[in-house]
């Protein structure tokens, strides 16, 4: 289905999830428009990462709905009202249209950089080897790693690995990219090179949901900031409103602690 620029690409409707007795997501609703860059911030344990992982069904959820281009993904409701998980094949199809980069990179260690980027388009999208190769080379060049195509992941720095991981996700030509704390595992001097890639993607019009602790970056790049605490969206809005004119006590306290910690 082609993406309608006036309708959300990703719609999260009244999503709830529990781990045992702990409610990690409470009735979360969020719509992401095509080309929009949404940054999700909040304290550790607020459910940011879980929310992101629910979007592509890496985490199952208990209630609510996630839609990609208005088509529900993950669960179907039978005529008798029973909610049932879709067959894995269907879920996999939806995931192929949603790119994701992880905090711990998760490159395939037994493949070269080039192979990491080529393998999913070739095997899952059935793209020809030549086309996959061309795309991989172009994307690796775009993230500044054209000289590393034949390296194995363990030979790369964390920042380089993360850039390969982003190229790998982009090779599937996703409609939306999810970024799960992609700079949190990096040495401080390597954070910049990864954020530069994200910035470049945002400028190119990619729809992005970014879970991050990099406030300055979120403020610069995001169209909208979503602040989460204790499994709920507490406040959201344009960056200058969220950072300069926070409404809720929780967000004020969060920003205060953040500014104290970073002396901003």
């Amino acid at each position: 289905m082609p993406t309608d620029p006036t309708r959300p690409i990703i719609t999260i409707d009244h999503l709830s999830k529990r781990f045992g007795s702990l409610a990690v997501l409470r009735d979360v609703s969020l719509a992401v428009m095509p080309g929009e860059v949404v940054a999700v911030i909040g304290p550790s344990g607020s459910g940011k990462t879980t929310l992101l992982r629910c979007i592509n069904l890496l985490e199952p959820f208990d209630a609510g709905e996630v839609r990609l281009d208005d088509a529900p993904i993950g669960y179907v409701v039978a005529p008798n009202g029973r909610r049932r998980r879709q067959p894995e094949r269907e879920i996999a199809k939806a995931r192929a249209a949603i790119g994701m980069a992880f905090q711990s990179f998760n490159l395939f260690p037994h493949m070269t950089v080039l192979r990491n980027v080529m393998v999913a388009p070739m095997r899952i999208k059935r793209v020809s080897r030549d086309a996959a190769h061309e795309t991989a080379v172009r994307l690796l060049d775009r993230v500044g790693l054209s000289d590393k195509v034949d390296a194995y992941p363990r030979q790369l720095s964390g920042g380089q690995q993360q850039r390969v991981a982003i190229a790998r996700a982009l090779a599937m030509e996703p409609k939306v990219m999810l970024f799960d704390e992609v700079t949190s595992a990096l040495d401080p001097e390597l954070v910049g090179e990864v954020l530069a890639v994200l910035r470049q993607l945002a400028e190119a019009g990619m729809t992005m949901v970014i879970v991050t602790h990099e406030m300055q970056f979120a403020r610069d790049v995001a169209d909208r900031i979503v602040f989460m605490a204790e499994g709920s969206i507490v406040e959201q809005g344009p960056p200058q409103q969220i950072f300069n004119d926070p409404q809720s006590e929780r967000l004020k306290a969060f920003l205060r602690r953040y500014r104290e910690a970073y002396l901003l």
């Binding site: 592509n56 890496l58 894995e88 094949r89 879920i91 996999a92 199809k93 995931r95 192929a96 249209a97 949603i98 790119g99 994701m100 992880f102 711990s104 990179f105 998760n106 490159l107 395939f108 999913a120 095997r123 899952i124 999208k125 991981a165 790998r168 996700a169 599937m172």
Partner: peptide
């Protein structure tokens, strides 16, 4: 095999035998 490898494969649209 680390959990992250399963996540990465699944996120790329792989499942089952693939």
């Amino acid at each position: 095999v680390p959990r992250g490898q399963w996540d990465a494969g699944r996120a790329l649209g792989m499942h089952g035998r693939w």
